[in-house]
Write a protein that binds this DNA or RNA. Sequence first.
DNA 1: AATCAAATTGAAAACGTTTTCAACTTGATA
DNA 2: TATCAAGTTGAAAACGTTTTCAATTTGATT
Lengths: 333, 333
Amino acid sequence: MDKQTVTIYDVAREADVSMATVSRVVNGNPNVKPATRKKVLDVIERLDYRPNAVARGLASKKTTTVGVIIPDVTNVYFSALARGIDDIAMMYKYNIILTNSDENGRKEVQVLNTLMAKQVDGIVFMGNDISEEVRKEFERSKTPIVLAGCVDDQGQMPSVNIDYTAAVEEATKNLIDHGNERVAFVSGSLDYPINKDYRLKGYKQALKKAGLRYDEKLVFETDYSYKAGQLLQPALQSVNATAAVIGDDELAAGVMNGVTDAGLSVPEDFEIITSNDTKLTEMVRPKMSSITQPLYDIGAVAMRLLTKLMNNEPVENKTVLLPYGLMKRASTH
Amino acid sequence: MDKQTVTIYDVAREADVSMATVSRVVNGNPNVKPATRKKVLDVIERLDYRPNAVARGLASKKTTTVGVIIPDVTNVYFSALARGIDDIAMMYKYNIILTNSDENGRKEVQVLNTLMAKQVDGIVFMGNDISEEVRKEFERSKTPIVLAGCVDDQGQMPSVNIDYTAAVEEATKNLIDHGNERVAFVSGSLDYPINKDYRLKGYKQALKKAGLRYDEKLVFETDYSYKAGQLLQPALQSVNATAAVIGDDELAAGVMNGVTDAGLSVPEDFEIITSNDTKLTEMVRPKMSSITQPLYDIGAVAMRLLTKLMNNEPVENKTVLLPYGLMKRASTH
DNA sequence: AATCAAATTGAAAACGTTTTCAACTTGATA
DNA sequence: TATCAAGTTGAAAACGTTTTCAATTTGATT
């Protein structure tokens, strides 16, 4: 073999033991005499034997690999989640395959199938939505799957999130408490359940509790991009919005820069609370107040949940809600 | 098998052909009669046969997987590179395994070995430095390896970069042409050849050509972080620096916010040119001028170079320098 | 020394696919 | 019809490791 020329057969022959014994040594099986073990380890070192993980995966039916599906690796929200996943995976001796889905339903199915073909032991799925095709694949999968930062409105999948409804309700309430009566809700696609059924719900609840009428003109649907945010200032002004709860940090940076570039002041003329508390909230000026999501922890807990599922360990709670907070910075009073 | 219960044996039996024929059909081998092919495809669809990529990898000695080593997935410089790699990999029917190295030499070796064990067909390595241990692993590897956004000062490895020396020279010249005589060089670790041997060299050349004396007090070594940049303002002021070429966008955002938070104006009191032209340069205020690196293209070209090496295609040029530019924004005159 | 139980080891099958080369089939030509 | 070349197919080995269960060894006890 041109990639890996020393096989278990070579080691066995040199050490004058069987392949089974070499395998036991390599895998830490206790049923090996210390002297035999030492002899084998010496040969392994001398020949620089490197076990072939592909062969091991086929024989043992475990690849110790976890597939992670990420919509966009350049988005810091998702990449911070991925860091949490990666670190816990490593702790439990798994490697991750990080695959871009581009938030494209077709590609999501494709990526899922690729990961399944590669016999990953489990999958962590990040995304904004679960399409019917993706859900079908989930249902037929024997490989455990956990959602991270992704809601399942049908409540079927194990998942780790924060309580987006309560978080947005609190952020909206904060702005209302500051005296804002025209609070905008700036969102990604309202086709996504996370936006329509969870975050918008929190927004509406805060309005209701404050005795404010819900005005759909204050709801803005975007593609989550900085550019889209930047272009929103005229529309926000035309509905007399004096504050906004915004669903993504880059989008919020766009809104904020659109507002300040237009000569208005944040927070004096317009208050902003964003949602992900990525490092961007500290880099822009003024610094942005944000719902605090423990991104790393969401990833970490999702991965831990997945290790439990993979090992058939008891799991008390398949839907985990982690704590959130509200970090006040300079974009609010 | 509990993960994948339909095997090639099941298909062969149902279709009344041999396993070899099923394999030929699955892999598009032309030596199959159309009628036989149709019969097999019908059975494949009926049984929903999913080939096991692990078994295929073992038998064919090709996994169609490429390992990508990334220092920090939350760093947009690297994640944009990764996008380019991923898209070209997909185009050539490869999947990538994206692995974090944390820019830690020991972990880099570990990650390399893991990827080799998983029999990846090739590796793209991103990092700031090639340690001796990593270089040893490169040398013993039979798997092709390409550097992306990483320089090899020994010139042994195939690599895709820009001409960092010329880029920094031009950026420094630009600041000098604006009348700055005290131009600072704000860098990552000077242990890294990319900083010490390439970028600093360009800085020195620009000074020399302008007849300015090199003053090492104008050279600042950091850990590349936003925080480190923010804290630099007093030191920059104490050496009377009026401008800076900065090696990373987050670092530059830190420097710039440190300067403006201290009450100075950019670019009036202090000019800044950063290096990576990530989207952050557009989000901060003032927008930052930057060396433009085609990050996506560096990744894409590196991946293309790797596909050539993996397929033993002729490669004219193992050291590829892509074009750079200078994007003037509001942090310079 | 004989017996027994526990520990250790090895042979061979298994994992699911690909590849090789001989055997077979088909179609064209004389 | 016989021959030949090209196309198609199948049996079995290969890939490198793990697992299973029988065989062997070892140590303790009587």
